[in-house]
Amino acid sequence: MTSKRLRSYLRTIGQVFVLQFKQLAIDGFIIFTVLVQPLLIAILGLWMMREQQGNYAIFIVVGSGMTGLWSSLLYISGSNINVERWLGTLEMLVGTPTPLAVTVIGKTLSNVVMSLSSMILGYVLAALIFRFPLTLAHPLLFVVSLICSVAAFAAFGLVIAPFFAINLQLQSWNNALEFPMYILAGFMFPIALLPGWTTPISYALAPYWAARALHATSSGNVPLSEVFLSWGMMLLFSVIYLLLSGWLFRVMVHKARVDATLSLQ
C-alpha cells in the first residue's frame, strides 16, 4: 500500500468517525444504550453490593462501562453495514474506490470511543453522587488496557458487521446476545461463579480478556503478569478478528454483487 493511499484511507476513517459520532450523539436509542443503560446497571450493581467489604465500587463502575461497550458494539457496530442498506447508500459505498471495510473501521471506532463515555459517566456518578472513593490501582496500565480493549472491541465489531449483513435474520438475535456476553466475559462478577464448562468459552472471547485487564489494573488485586497475558490475548484476538473480517467483507461484497442483494431490505 502506498503512503498516498494510506493517507487517503486515514482521511476517510477520520471523516467517517466524525460524521458517525455526530449522528450517534443525537440518537435516542444510542443515548440509552451507551449512557442510560450502563448507568442504571451501575446504580443497581452499587446498590446490590453495598454490604460487601473492599473496593468493589471501581469493579462495578468498570464492569458497567464494559456492558455499555458491548451493547453498543452489538447494536450499533452490528448494523454498521445494514444501516447503509436501509438508507439506500450501500450501493454507493461499495461502488466508491475506497474499500467498504475502511468506512466501517471509521464507524466502528467512533462507536467504541463513544461508548467509553459510559465508563466515564459511571465513574462520575459513583464518585460524586454516591461518594465512593474511586482510585485506579495502576492508572498507566489501565490506560494501556483501555487502548488494547478499544482495539479488540473495534476488531470484533469489524467481524460482526459483515456477519450480520450476510445473515440478515441474525440481527434479530441482538437482544439475546447482550446478556450472555455480560455473563461470560465477567464484566460485573468473576467467571469463577459460573459452571466450569463455560470457562473455555470465556477464554475464547476478547471482551473477557479486556474485562480481566481493566478489572486487574483498576482494582489492582492480581499480579502484573496476568495483565500482560490479557494484553497479549487481546492482541492475538484482534489479529484473528481482522483476518476473519477481511475474509467476511470479501465474501459479503462478492455475494451481494452476484446475488444483486446490495439493496435487499
Partner: peptide
C-alpha cells in the same frame, strides 16, 4: 442471579 449471588 449471578450478580446477586456474588453480592449476597
Amino acid at each position: 442471579a449471578f450478580l446477586g449471588m456474588y453480592a449476597s
